[in-house]
Simulated scan of single mutants.
Amino acid sequence: MNRKSRKKKKKWLKWVLISFSILFVGLAIYLFTIYQSLNSATDKMHNPIDRDISTKRSEQVNFNEKDPFSVLVLGVDEREDDAGRSDTMIVMTVNPNEESTKLLSIPRDTLTEIVGRGTQDKINHAYAFGGIPMTMDTVENLLDIPIDYYLQVNMEGFEDIVDAVGGVSVDNNFSFDSGGYSFPEGELKLDGHEALAYSRMRYEDPNGDFGRQERQRKIIQGVVREGASLNSLWNFSNIFDALGNNIKTNLTFKQMVDIQSEYRSAASNFEQTSIQNGSGERIDGIYYYVVPAEELTAVQTALKEHLDI
């Protein structure tokens, strides 16, 4: 190889190294920006509550030891001059040893004891009476399992989350109209406004509250699916802003990182269940969903087994 050729080769290698260096620095800056944005969003989301460890646990959940745990997911409608109601109530149990996550939907009209008030009422009224702590205590008492963490979603702001991930796709079981929109049967792509109207329809559904819960789970799964896609990486700022503004949880950033690291396999295997075999009854003119004792016992047993209790 002559001197001129060697010189050209060195020059080419130099530009390759410079290009890779620029690419590496740019990637590092981009990842650091994502980390900072995520950290900022989770700081806004973090909302610790004044509630001791559950009496149904002997010690705190340890994510590094892959302990099974539970999360109460609440979709809350909060209006001006109103404490609000927990419009959606889902108990999520996660077992990394079984590599599975169970989602149990609780009908909002379920008749149960409101812990802290000593009264029987609709379970979704617990939020209006005592916020997150009373709701967690009431659900814990109903299901006879520890409720370790909570995740509260502002349903009005849920539109922003759906729009931030670019909309969601759902498989709609039957045609209906809701909130000024028409939803034909089949695969649908929904923006934020449409997703909220789709998830809120209740009275036209032949399955009533159960059908509504199923549509809400479809929207949530759609958000998770779209949020995890590569396309969302370029829109991370809007996604994190939407999450930070509309979600509250007592999970810390470190705990979220631990869950992502230690429970990833469980998060990919969802099983959806609901409290069924109950009946709608009117008591003093008010509608309640009454769950038979044997049905409640079966649900409690399944959840305890999944939490290794």
Rank of each mutant, 00 (worst) to 15 (best):
L74K: 05
I247M: 05
D82M: 07
Q255I: 03
D171E: 14
N245I: 01
L104N: 11
S19E: 15
D77T: 02
N172R: 09
S105G: 08
V291P: 02
A126V: 00
G227V: 00
V299F: 13
S261E: 15
F174M: 10
I147S: 04
H193C: 13
Y127S: 03
T119D: 14
F210Q: 06
E226L: 00
S265G: 12
I18M: 06
Y127I: 00
S268N: 08
I34C: 02
S5M: 14
M1V: 13
V16G: 13
E140R: 08
M136D: 07
E295V: 06
V115N: 12
E294R: 06
E281M: 07
K4G: 05
A28W: 04
P292E: 15
M45L: 01
K8Q: 11
M201D: 09
D241T: 11
L196Q: 12
D191F: 04
N95F: 00
F20D: 13
R51G: 11
M1C: 14
W12N: 15
R200V: 02
G118M: 07
D209Y: 01
Q276V: 09
D121S: 09
Y149W: 04
G192Y: 01
G208W: 07
V71R: 00
I106E: 13
L188P: 10
D144W: 11
I22W: 12
G244P: 05
I147G: 06
D81K: 08
I34D: 06
D137S: 14
T55F: 12
R117E: 12
A126N: 03
M256T: 06
K56T: 01
S40P: 06
H306Y: 10
S169A: 09
G167P: 04
